[in-house]
Design a protein around this nucleic acid. Structure first.
Length: 570
DNA sequence: GCCGTTTTCGGCCCGACTGTTTTCAGTCG
């Protein structure tokens, strides 16, 4: 029994109850319990007694009993009954923007629709607009929502692919038949979404290893199984390709299967010009087909006159020219990060207290940390009223006398619709630094949205703009901003831009990071953590920074505490 | 469904926005 399974079931129960129109607080209870379970260490759940389960936050006797029932029987009767009442397929509609539980209930009740394609057909034929509470605009929004959802469908978030691949690699590595194992493809390049996971291995017994590969417990379906290549679909719908290669070809295979396609096309044509032929087996002399090198990726790049190109840069966005001229950036690494300056605590909508955060941060080796709770108008996220701001500052001052990690008190202050900030100046001045960000009012045209942010950046108290485009991968399109105006304003007002590491944000994007750097913008890489395990998401922000060609010096939270202090007070 | 030292029952987070609706319901955060 995996935590993830239980957490998913509890979330599904909550969703189904919502479509049913159940009591809101009951629904919320299931969601809170799901989050509690997701927070647990893996395998811990299996060992817990009923009493121990009830000790977990937001888990009471009813939910604890359901968890025990699942562990003992592999199913939960309540959940099964619920699914008979409301088809579970309907939950996929919740991913479509502008559709919520009430609309789903209406659609199902009146039209009996359960799949997205049926829904799309109905909308295209104008069958939705006559339903109660629907209209022409709603119908159009639903169609738009479906198209938007389809664009991102079939691709997993980097975090999901990464965690899935790590588990698989650990499983593979436990076999003595495997000599080496590497991740390739877009996951090795750390793209924000991943189509499928590519794993390369070297083994003396390829046939046996394929059997071992498909015996992995998470495998749902074997799509193809051959001598050197096998493809499986996992329970979580992620596809994994395994390729077995010879030791002497591992470097070439890694180069080939890491891509990107554009990078490889350019690399191969360069090899050709230099009198070589490059394929997934090695680098060959074009005339006599003699192999030159193949086991080591770095050798291949060197042989065709290039510095080694880190996988995150391989998009044919100038990295080959830079490798030739020895001007590749010395990319930032996770160990360069000295602190995380965008974290929510229980003061607002975070799930962890400041002491909890410090405990986690100690394991990451940071020197400082910034607690940035929401501002007053974001009541839903328990944004802090001015009097609470003063209380929070007092708490942090007292904590600072007891810890080696420097704790800073910031705020994530909302940018209101007119571009003014959500606290008066005398409150803003109380903070060690001010992050600004948008959390409501997203439907604006380009000019208004851009002006709203530019105006806010001009405020003298502002240090950093959080998640600048506000996109949510697969859920919300980015604000229609004039990005070059934004970058220029960031330089003019000395406002840093955030690379928000939260897996469905990754905002700014790699592409914008690279562009912004060329303007001279400086960055923070933060997690926007709302729970302890979120602090580890920093690796995805680092990946985005690396894909955006950033070096240590571009990122402010690589500074020593003293330097940071100087920066914040300047 | 969970929680709790003022409560074991009655709270639990609600405001902005949109589209439908002519006074409000649903979605989103």
């Amino acid at each position: 029994m995996k935590n993830e399974d239980i957490a998913t079931i509890l979330q599904n129960i909550a969703d189904l109850l919502e479509i049913k129109g159940e009591n809101y607080f009951k629904i919320r209870a299931y969601r809170m319990a799901a989050e509690s379970i997701a927070e647990l260490q893996e395998d811990y759940l299996n060992k817990m007694s009923q009493v121990a389960l009830e000790e977990l936050p937001h888990v009471g006797s009813a939910i604890a009993k359901k968890i025990t029932e699942y562990r003992e029987t592999g199913a939960i009767k309540y959940y099964e009954t619920l699914k008979k009442e409301i088809p579970i397929e309907l939950l996929q509609f919740l991913k479509i923007p502008s559709i919520g539980p009430k609309k789903i209930a209406t659609i199902y009740e009146h039209l009996g629709i359960t799949t997205i394609s049926e829904l799309q057909n109905a909308a295209e034929q104008g069958k939705l607009q006559d339903l109660e509470g629907f209209g022409k605009i709603t119908e159009m929004n639903i169609l738009r929502g479906i198209r938007f959802t389809q664009k991102t469908q079939g691709r997993a978030l980097l975090v999901h692919a990464d965690e899935t691949a790590q588990r698989y690699v650990n499983y593979l590595a436990s076999s003595p038949l495997i000599e080496s194992c590497s991740i390739a493809g877009s996951l090795r390049r750390m793209k924000e979404t991943i189509g499928d996971i590519d794993i390369l291995i070297t083994s003396r017994e390829p046939a046996t290893i394929m059997d071992y590969f498909v015996s992995y417990p998470e495998v749902n379906q074997i799509l193809a199984k051959g001598q050197t290549k096998t493809t499986v679909l996992l329970d979580n719908h992620i596809q994994v390709d395994l390729r077995v290669v010879q030791n002497e070809s591992m470097g070439a295979a890694l180069q080939y299967f890491t891509g990107s396609k554009e990078h490889n096309v350019a690399i191969r044509s360069r090899a050709l010009k230099k009198g070589y032929k490059l394929n997934e087996y090695g680098l060959y002399n074009k005339k006599n087909d003699h192999i030159i090198t193949g086991a080591n990726e770095e050798d291949i790049y060197r042989q065709i006159g290039l510095d080694y190109i880190p996988s995150e840069l391989r998009e044919n966005r100038g990295e080959i020219e830079a490798a030739e001229n020895h001007t590749l950036p010395n990319l930032i690494q996770q160990k360069d990060i000295q602190g995380d300056l965008h974290i929510h605590s229980t003061w607002s909508d975070g799930m962890h207290t400041i002491p909890d955060i410090i405990k986690q941060v100690e394991t990451l080796g940071y020197s400082y940390v910034g607690i940035t709770d929401h501002s007053q108008s974001l009541r839903i996220a328990k944004g802090l009223l001015p009097r609470q701001v003063e209380q929070k500052i007092n708490e942090i001052q007292s904590i600072n006398t007891e810890t080696n990690i420097q704790v800073l008190c910031g705020t994530e202050c909302d940018i209101l619709k007119d571009g003014t900030l959500d606290y008066p100046d005398h409150i803003l001045e109380l903070f060690d630094y001010v992050i600004i960000g948008i959390h409501m009012g997203f439907s604006m045209n380009k000019e208004d949205a851009t002006n709203r942010i530019l105006k806010a950046m001009e405020h003298p108290s502002v240090t950093l703009l959080a998640h600048p485009t506000c996109r949510m991968i697969g859920h919300r399109e980015p604000l229609p901003l004039d990005m070059t105006a934004l970058f220029q304003k960031a330089v003019d007002t000395n406002t840093a831009l955030e690379i928000n590491s939260f897996p469905d944000r990754l905002d700014l994007t790699d592409y914008h990071v690279k562009q912004a750097k060329e303007y001279g913008v400086r960055f923070f890489i933060d997690t926007d953590a709302h729970a302890p395990h979120h602090l580890h998401y920093i690796k995805y922000g680092i990946a985005t920074a690396r894909r955006g060609w950033l070096e240590k010096k571009d990122v402010i939270n690589t500074s020593t505490p003293k330097k940071l202090e100087r920066y914040l007070s300047s």
